[in-house]
Amino acid sequence: MSIFGFHYQLERKAIGLVLGIVLVSSIGGLVEIAPLFTIHQTVEDAKDMRLYTPLELAGRNIYIREGCYACHSQMIRTLRDEVDRYGPYSLAVESKYDHPMLWGSKRTGPDLARIGEKYSDQWQVAHLINPRDVVPVSIMPAYDWLLSTDLRTDDLSAHLKAQRAVGVPYTDEMIANAALDAYGQANPDSPRAEGVTKRYGKATTVRPFDGLPGRLTEMDAMVAYLQVLGRLTDAARKPVAQAGAVQ
């Protein structure tokens, strides 16, 4: 057999065999991953897609720091039961500014892709302080120190800059005002609040997330982030709204 005859010869040439192995094992990536960068349909268009504010980004960093992704996914798959339980399936564009993405596949707790504004701030705060207070059967750890720890804001500009380096379109003005915007978003009565909606859009929620106006805690950042999950764009609601119309 000739293909085995060719292999017979290849096995006797070390460099040739190594090159052959590299070539064959890269086929999967070349065919399945590389084209996603050029195919137009990979990432949907969403004109209303907005950026994470500095406070939400800080909350995202805390989410990563505390390892929330180990038990919570942020990805609703294109399956009927997932859509029934969690809402419209996730679109690629919704993770456009997620660096790194936090999709995950391990669900010890529920998926959080559409948790934004599903529950009140008070509930989120009470639940993070001690999950058993509101959900008696919960096995989630308590994160009560978030409320007593002041949020570090001096490095927020650097975080925004790092995000810009990987393609998130933060402007110089956003980077320069990162720390002030983080404060303003959690303090609606402060003079800083106005700048947040001006820079990040009217859809941005400005309120004292942790219930303690005047103080900027890690709880503010965490709840601000949780309340924006699935709400950066309305794109995902459109296809399912059509499907739901027949109900």
């Binding site: 050029t38 195919i39 349909q41 294109t78 009927r80 399936y89 027949v246």
Partner: peptide
Amino acid sequence: PLGVTYTRGLLGIDQRNVVAQSLKEAA
């Protein structure tokens, strides 16, 4: 993959339509 697009296949199967269809059937 064909550069900026891809072959759709004769059956025209798209998981998003599959979900929409199954939701419709459930309704």
